[in-house]
Design a protein around this nucleic acid. Structure first.
Length: 778
DNA sequence: GCCTGACGGGG
DNA sequence: GTGTACGTCAGGC
C-alpha cells in the first residue's frame, strides 16, 4: 500500500458493470493526477416510522424487500430538533428507488430522508471530505496510464495543510462563432476560431476548410497538456453547449476528459469534464455584486488588468469577421489572457469557497449562494446528528423586514454612522433562532421563550443548528485573523487566509437569508420573521436611547443609525448597546458633509477621509446612461464641497449644452437593463423589452440575465417604440431632448434640490439653451 | 391622476 | 432559485 499527500480536485460517480463506483480525482504537489476509486460506497435512505412499526419495517426489508446487498442500521437522530428513531438502509443507488416504492405501499406512514442527495455528494458528506483540500491518502496502485496514476482507495485522513496549492496545469479557452442572421446555430455555422492559452501553450486555430479540424486540434491539445483546469468565460452558457452540438453534427466528440471521456451536461447547466475542473468565470462575475454589467471587460477593470483595445459586441461578430478579422482574433486572444490572469487573482477565493462549502471548485460557482450555504449546513447538520430534511417547498408568504427611519432632508455636517456588527448573525446566536428550536405552540415554560408579537416560541434548552454553525464560522474566522498577521503583505499565505476569512464571513451573513428562502431544506419562516422583528426592536430601542442622550438622529436603516458626531455621547450609547442590548455596535464612518433628499435609501456624503460616498442614487445604478451619471457625480462633489450655486449651475449648463450641441458620444448614452424573465412572461411593454423582442425577431436568443443596451431615438409615441439596440443606433437619430429632460435634469435636480435649486430652474436653463440664450438669471 | 409592472441597488 | 424595504420610471386607463 502506498501513501501520499493529495489534493482533492473533483469527485465523479459512474456505473461499471453492475457496480456504482466513486472516483476521487486528486493531484499531488507536483501536479501528477490520480484517479482513486472506491467501490464500497453504498447509497442510503433514512426511514422514519412510528416507533411501534420499527421492528416490522426492519423485518420487512430483510425478508421481503427482495433485494440483495441491503444492510440496515437502526439510528437515533434529530429531525429538526426532535429525537427520532429510524432505520438507515444501505444499498446500491439502482435499488434504492425500488425499495422505496415497496415500502411506501406497505408502510404509508413512513417518511424518507436523504434519498434526494446526489450519490457523489453523499460520499463527500459521509466521509467529511471537501474538494480543494489536502489529504493523507493510502491507496493500492492498479496501474498508471499516460499521465494518470490509477488506484484503489484504502484510507484517507484530513490534513490541516491549508497554505499552499498544488502545481496546477491550467488552460484558458475562447471560441469565435458568428452567423449572418442572428444567433449562431451549431447546425449551420462553423466554429471560426478557437483560442487556447496556458502554461507554454498559446495557440489560435482558425477555420480553413472544415471546423472538424479545429475540434480535433482542441481534443489533441487538451489530451497532450492534460490540464487540471479548463477556464472559460461563458463556457457553461455558450461555448460548451455549442461545441458539443457542433461536434455531434460532424460526427465527432468533445472528448477532453482525462481518459478521453466526453464532456457532458450535469447539474444546473454545469458541464462536467471527467477528471478536470471546468471553471466558467462568467459565473464568478454573476455572483459578485460589485460587478454590474457582468462582462469580461468589467471583470478586467475590476481586477486591474489591461483593457481590450476595443470591446466587441457579439451582435457584430459576423460583420467584424468579414471586415476586420484580425481585430476579432486579437480580441479573443485578449479574452483568454484576461481569463488566465483573473483566475490567478481569484483562485484563493474560489478554492476557499469550495473547501468550506464542500462543493467542487467548478460547481461551486455554478451553485447560487443558497445552495452554497445549504451544502455547508448539510455538512454540519450531519456531524451534529441532524437528519437532512427535504425542502418543504411551499411559500409561507412574505414577512416584515428591517426598519428604515425617514431621513432628515437637507445638508448635514459632522454626522457619524453607528452600525451594529453583523446584526442578523448575532441575533440568531443570541436568541438561539434556528429551524430546530422554533416552537409553534405558545407553551410558556422556563425552557421556552415566547414572542407574542410575532407568535413564535424558541426552545432554549439546547443550542440550535444555525447558532452553532454561525458560532463555528465566527470562531474559525477569528482564528484565521490571528494567523494572518504572521504572514507578510502580498504573500501567498496571506492571500489564501484572507480569502478564507472572507468566505467565512459571507457564509455567516447569508444564514439569515437562507432561513427565509422558500427553496431551502432548512426553511424557517418563523425564524426569519423573528430575526427581523428582534432587529426592529434593537434599532427602535437604540433610537430611543439616542434621544435620551441628546443625539440627533438624521437617518437609520435596519442596522444603522446616522447621528451627529458627539464622541462622548456616542461612547455612552455604544456602552449602553453592549450592556443593555447585549449587542455590539461601532462607528462605521464619519461624514464631514452629508446630503439627504426626502427619499429613504438614497444619499451622498463626503467622509472625513475626503471620499465621496454615494448610496442608492442614480450614479450607482446601471439603468441610467453614463452621461447623466457622470453629471450627477460631479454635481454631488460640488455640493458636498460647498461650491457656490453659480459655479454649480455653470457646470450643469455646460453639460446640457453638450447634449444640445449633439457632442456627446453615443456610448455614454446607452441605457442598460437586464432581462429578468422569459419574454412571454412580461405583462408590460418597456424599452428594453421592445428591443429584446426586436432582437429575437432577428434570430437572437434572449436569455434570462442578458443585458440589453439601448438608445432612445427621435420620433413620436411611447418610449418603447423609439428605443433601439445600441449597435443599431445612428447618432443623427438620437433624441437629444430625451437625454436632457429625462436623464440629465432628473438626476441633477435630485441632488440640487437640497440646496434650493429646483427642477423648474434646471428646465428653464435647458430650454433657454434651445433658444440660443446662454445666460440664466436667477 | 392614479395604479401597476418592472428594475436595481441598500442593509 | 438567500431575505425585505424602497424609489423611480413608463405604460395604460
Amino acid at each position: 500500500m502506498l501513501e501520499n499527500s493529495l489534493w482533492l480536485l473533483d469527485i465523479t460517480s459512474e456505473k461499471e458493470g453492475d457496480k456504482n463506483i466513486i472516483s476521487l480525482w486528486m493531484t499531488d504537489v507536483n501536479g501528477t493526477l490520480y484517479r482513486l476509486i472506491d467501490e464500497d460506497h453504498k447509497d442510503w435512505v433514512i426511514i422514519v416510522v412510528p416507533e411501534e412499526e420499527l421492528d416490522e419495517l426492519s423485518l420487512y426489508i430483510k425478508e421481503d424487500g427482495g433485494v440483495d446487498g441491503v444492510s440496515i442500521i437502526p439510528v437515533n437522530m434529530y429531525l429538526l430538533g426532535k429525537k427520532v428513531s429510524g432505520l438507515k438502509v444501505y444499498t446500491d443507488p439502482d435499488h434504492l428507488d425500488n425499495i422505496l416504492k415497496k415500502i411506501r405501499m406497505r408502510f404509508p406512514e413512513a417518511k424518507f430522508y436523504e434519498d434526494d442527495i446526489r450519490f457523489s455528494n453523499k460520499y463527500l458528506l459521509k466521509n467529511m471530505l471537501s474538494p480543494s483540500k489536502w489529504y493523507r491518502v493510502q491507496y493500492i496502485e492498479s496501474g498508471s496510464s499516460g499521465n494518470v496514476v490509477t488506484g484503489v482507495l484504502k484510507g484517507l485522513d484530513y490534513s490541516a495543510e491549508l497554505l499552499h496549492f498544488p502545481n496546477l496545469r491550467i488552460l484558458a479557452l475562447d471560441m469565435i462563432v458568428a452567423s449572418p442572421i442572428g444567433e449562431p446555430d451549431p447546425d449551420t455555422d462553423p466554429i471560426l476560431a478557437i483560442t487556447i492559452s496556458g502554461g507554454s501553450i498559446d495557440q489560435q486555430f482558425i477555420l480553413s476548410d472544415s471546423d472538424a479540424e479545429l475540434i480535433n486540434k482542441l481534443n489533441k491539445l487538451v489530451a497532450d497538456y492534460n490540464p487540471h483546469l479548463i477556464l472559460t468565460f461563458e463556457g457553461n452558457s455558450f461555448i460548451w453547449p455549442y461545441l458539443t452540438e457542433r461536434a455531434k453534427n460532424l460526427n465527432l466528440n468533445i472528448n477532453i476528459g482525462v481518459f478521453n471521456q466526453e464532456i457532458h451536461q450535469s447539474l444546473h447547466g454545469h458541464y462536467s469534464i471527467p477528471g478536470r475542473l471546468n471553471i466558467d468565470l462568467k459565473e464568478y462575475v454573476e455572483g459578485n455584486p460589485l460587478l454590474q454589467r457582468k462582462t469580461i471587460e468589467e471583470l478586467a477593470e475590476f481586477l486591474g488588468l489591461p483593457a481590450a483595445r476595443k470591446p466587441l459586441d457579439r451582435l457584430l461578430y459576423f460583420e467584424i469577421w468579414n471586415q476586420n478579422r484580425s481585430a476579432l482574433l486579437e480580441y479573443s486572444k485578449w479574452k483568454v489572457q484576461v481569463i488566465l490572469r483573473a483566475f490567478e487573482l481569484l483562485m484563493e477565493e474560489i478554492f476557499s469557497l469550495s473547501a468550506i462549502t464542500g462543493l467542487p471548485a467548478d460547481y461551486v460557482l455554478t451553485a447560487s449562494t443558497g445552495y452554497q450555504v445549504e451544502n455547508y449546513i448539510m455538512k454540519n447538520a450531519l456531524s451534529m446528528g441532524e437528519i437532512i430534511v427535504k425542502p418543504p417547498g411551499h411559500w409561507r408568504g412574505t414577512y416584515t423586514g428591517g426598519l428604515v427611519l425617514p431621513p432628515e432632508p437637507g445638508i448635514h455636517r459632522d454626522i457619524c454612522v453607528i452600525d451594529f456588527k453583523s446584526m442578523y448573525p448575532n441575533i440568531i446566536m443570541k436568541y438561539n433562532i434556528s429551524p430546530d428550536t422554533i416552537v409553534r405552540e405558545s407553551t410558556a415554560s422556563n425552557k421556552i421563550r415566547y414572542y407574542d408579537e410575532v407568535g413564535v416560541g424558541i426552545d432554549l434548552s439546547k443550542e440550535g443548528l444555525f447558532p452553532k454553525i454561525i458560532k463555528k464560522l465566527i470562531d474559525e474566522r477569528d482564528k484565521i485573523k490571528v494567523q494572518i498577521d504572521k504572514y507578510g503583505a502580498g504573500s501567498v499565505e496571506r492571500r489564501i487566509l484572507d480569502a478564507h476569512q472572507r468566505v467565512l464571513k459571507v457564509l455567516a451573513n447569508a444564514m439569515y437569508g437562507y432561513m427565509g428562502w422558500t427553496g431551502a431544506r432548512f426553511y424557517s419562516w418563523e425564524g426569519a420573521q423573528l430575526v427581523t422583528y428582534l432587529g426592529r426592536e434593537i434599532i427602535t430601542k437604540s433610537k430611543e436611547k439616542c434621544e435620551e442622550l441628546g443625539l440627533k438622529i438624521v437617518y437609520g436603516d435596519t442596522d444603522s443609525l446616522f447621528v451627529n458626531y458627539d464622541e462622548d455621547k456616542i461612547r455612552r450609547l455604544l456602552h449602553w448597546i453592549e450592556d443593555e442590548l447585549g449587542m455590539e455596535a461601532k462607528i462605521d464612518r464619519i461624514y464631514k458633509v452629508l446630503l439627504f433628499t426626502e427619499a429613504k435609501k438614497r444619499y451622498a456624503g463626503l467622509t472625513i477621509e475626503d471620499y465621496i460616498d454615494i448610496v442608492g442614487l442614480e450614479y450607482v445604478r446601471r439603468d441610467w446612461c453614463e452621461y447623466a451619471k457622470e453629471t450627477q457625480y460631479k454635481l454631488i462633489d460640488m455640493v458636498l464641497r460647498d461650491r457656490n450655486k453659480e459655479e454649480i449651475l455653470n457646470y450643469f449648463r455646460e453639460r446640457v449644452k453638450k447634449l444640445n450641441d449633439q457632442k456627446v458620444s453615443m456610448e455614454k448614452l446607452i441605457i442598460w437593463e437586464q432581462i429578468t424573465r422569459r419574454l412571454d412572461e412580461y405583462k408590460a411593454m418597456s424599452p428594453h423589452i421592445a428591443v429584446a423582442e426586436e432582437l429575437a425577431l432577428k434570430g437572437w436568443k434572449i436569455r434570462k440575465g442578458m443585458f440589453i443596451g439601448y438608445i432612445i431615438l427621435r420620433g413620436s409615441g411611447p418610449l418603447y417604440k423609439r428605443a433601439v439596440h445600441h449597435t443599431m443606433a445612428r447618432i443623427e437619430d438620437i433624441d437629444w431632448e430625451y437625454y436632457i429632460y429625462k436623464q440629465v435634469i432628473p438626476v441633477s435636480a435630485r441632488v440640487l434640490e437640497p440646496i434650493g435649486i429646483t427642477k423648474d430652474d434646471l428646465e428653464s436653463i435647458a430650454s433657454g439653451l434651445h433658444f440660443g440664450m446662454d445666460r440664466f438669471l436667477m
